[in-house]
Design a protein around this nucleic acid. Structure first.
Lengths: 239, 239, 239, 239
DNA sequence: GATGAATGAGGTTTCATTCAT
DNA sequence: TATGAATGAAACCTCATTCAT
């Protein structure tokens, strides 16, 4: 019977349902506003049920982060397939990162919360590893493009620089930039209207600083952004 | 009697003492480990007394952040006096920023905590303004150097770029880079040993990307870092 | 004003009040029926208040045991003053032990509960020590009488026996006997009506076994029991 | 097929398996550490299945006690067959009791737990009776030996003593002594090294007090202990 | 101003038991 | 018979804040 199937599907999806509701609460009320009572109430289930799927509150938080990281991996994997020179593909990656932040804005908040050691300590090693692995996959995809840039002759790193360090730079700009946009009133007030555009520009200037050809003065990477969004990420809502 | 004076001084300094003790606890045990009981106990005063100096716990947190921001202003104001070309003075600023992070590592954590809206909401507007003002002063100091760069001919910004946006870029790299260093195991494992050095390099590459002369290939900004530390910040402990 | 004094006295007595109420609940509903909610409710105070005086539930339990142990010490100290030969004074001690069990029947239950390591583990070392010290004082008082018996010539221990071991024997009979009386239906059914009398007799037979003069066949120790109760423990209700 | 037989046997043995696993958990983690989840998990069956063999958790506890009591009966029945005078056979009984405690140390803990009325109340009358019957059989075996002692002339009880009361005395020493050994740090520290030996000695001294011939000064009952262990209980591991 | 006991809402976690499949 | 997800009552504990002294 289809009724049976439906119920079974519901049961199987419990963890995902819990995460969906938790994410909703987290987005609206922040870490301190997320608690087991509220999750249970909003789901219409018993509090104890949550504990059958998650060891504790902290695991719920971490699982939410892993879930979005997996979304990011999927997006990065799509972006990396963009047809073009290495630096254009890196721009596609930037587009993916930007769309990720726009569509999963709570991920940054999650990262902040998880950086409190007192929280991560309470989680299982298994889930911690899952998060690390997911992060590594993202970074590897980006680092791969840097290596492609070197291999294809567009980029020539100074002796004392390694591809991973370029990734660190891009990552810092994005992570820092988006964080500032979210939280720091001050910078927002300073005539900075389109933060996303600014993060793109800064990443481009950094790569220009490394002399990665074609430079942003030679090729319009913002046009490539639009192309990537149309060709690859058309399923994401336009801003 | 000097005894009376001492006691009076102690009482006058109460707010500052509370912040000092709070910072100590915050550094050791994080936000969740900081509570009024512990502050009172560690200060040897009654819990109620704290409420005569701070409206609530959130104000303590915010006041801590303002206090360190003022330290940062002081450091930036010293850095800006470094004798040299505009870009060298910007390097001096980077040195100040780095020393600030090293000496007040809790400030980043505080910023993270304060980005939870539920916390800042409970604070007085007065203190919120104090924080914004302090941040603005820091940013203005950096933006001033960008303008100096333009004025002195070393830097020529494209039409669509404003000095504040360059500040945003530098800020992002520093904020993002230091955040990643603190929390993200993943990147740390990827062959990145000296994160501070890397943040410097990335800032330099970004400025290179803007074509700010002399480029980092023409002038050894790391040497300038050392000079700044020796000449201007000799009172800070060496790493 | 006397009002002030009264209130202050109440405040000072809070811990003792908590223990009194806890003991009451423990007696009626056992360990599993004793919880912080019930204590608070029955006292008409907030649950949190209990935690200002006791770190956790286990400390309440342990404190109750220490409190009764102190009652026992007081009783033993009175018994030891009984005028008579060493063995008569030991009988007085037995009388004290019996009256203690009759008047503080929950102490045995407390001891049982505390023998669960999982409970004692959660208590502070300070209180644990207090309990050990109290027990030592009781044992020392009994052991002192054994030594008196030896010194006065009534008792001559075989080479391989030490006074403490005699104490262990008496303690075992009392502890075991009273425990059996409380809990084991079986033995109660077997024609044993007056368990207290029986414990006395067994202790006497054990001392007879050691040849402690005058033997129970030579002197009526039950008469001494009555005498002790009349002379020394007249403030305790008659059975 | 033998496979079917094996599975069937397993199903038939379910209750016993549940008790075995429960005992294991109880021994390692105590009463508070024993729960249905752990039993089910460790058995590799579903939690609900346990409820098809035991009405509730309390019945599991009680059934464990009955099971060990049956072991004790078996041991006592073997001991009573020892060839020798009545008092020597009583020594054999002591040996059995000692070996029982050594090999089933959890039984004392179980007795303690069961003495909480709130637990026994939830069990079926049937199982309660089973426990009482088992205890009675043990006591009867011991009481029988006392009567043998009287019948064979070695023991002459005073008018006001009955055989069951002697059993009560022995039982008290053993129950109390073993309990103290398990839990009371204090007495253990007082120069008492071999508690088992001490319990034996005290039992002997008690019987000496009753004048049961041959006295412990006339016959080496510790030697008889060793003999009993070798002849009758050679299947139990040596200490 | 200083105190600190009292508050009480708010949170997390556990676990015996049930019941639809 | 077996399952195991769901239940929900019951417990423990925390801590910012108040207020009578």
């Amino acid at each position: 019977m289809s009724t049976v199937t439906k119920k079974q599907r519901e049961i199987i999806d419990r963890p995902r349902q819990i995460l969906r509701v938790s994410r909703d609460i987290f987005r609206k009320r922040g870490y301190l506003g997320l608690n087991m009572d509220r999750i249970a109430e909003q789901m219409g289930i018993a509090k104890g049920t949550i504990y059958q799927h998650f060891k504790n509150k902290e695991e719920v938080i971490l699982a939410m982060a892993v879930e979005t990281l997996e979304k990011r991996i999927a997006m990065f994997e799509r972006a990396v397939l963009f047809q073009g020179c290495a630096r254009s593909r890196m721009a596609a990656m930037g587009c993916a990162a930007e769309l990720f932040v726009i569509n999963f804005p709570d991920h940054f908040e999650l990262e902040k919360v998880l950086s409190c050691s007192s929280i991560i300590e309470k989680t299982s090693e298994k889930l911690q590893t899952a998060k690390t692995v997911a992060e590594m996959r993202c970074i590897s995809l980006v680092a791969g493009l840097v290596r492609d840039g070197i291999a294809s002759g567009g980029l020539s790193l100074p002796n004392d620089f390694k591809p991973d360090q370029v990734v660190f730079g891009l990552w810092s700009i994005s992570y820092g930039g988006y964080s500032i946009m979210e939280s720091q009133e001050t910078l927002k007030q300073m005539g900075i209207e389109n933060g996303f555009r600014l993060v793109r520009d800064m990443n481009n200037k950094l790569l220009d600083g490394f002399g990665w050809k074609p430079l942003s003065s030679e090729l319009d990477y913002n046009a490539i952004f639009d192309e990537v969004r149309t060709l690859i990420f058309s399923d994401f809502p336009k801003p």
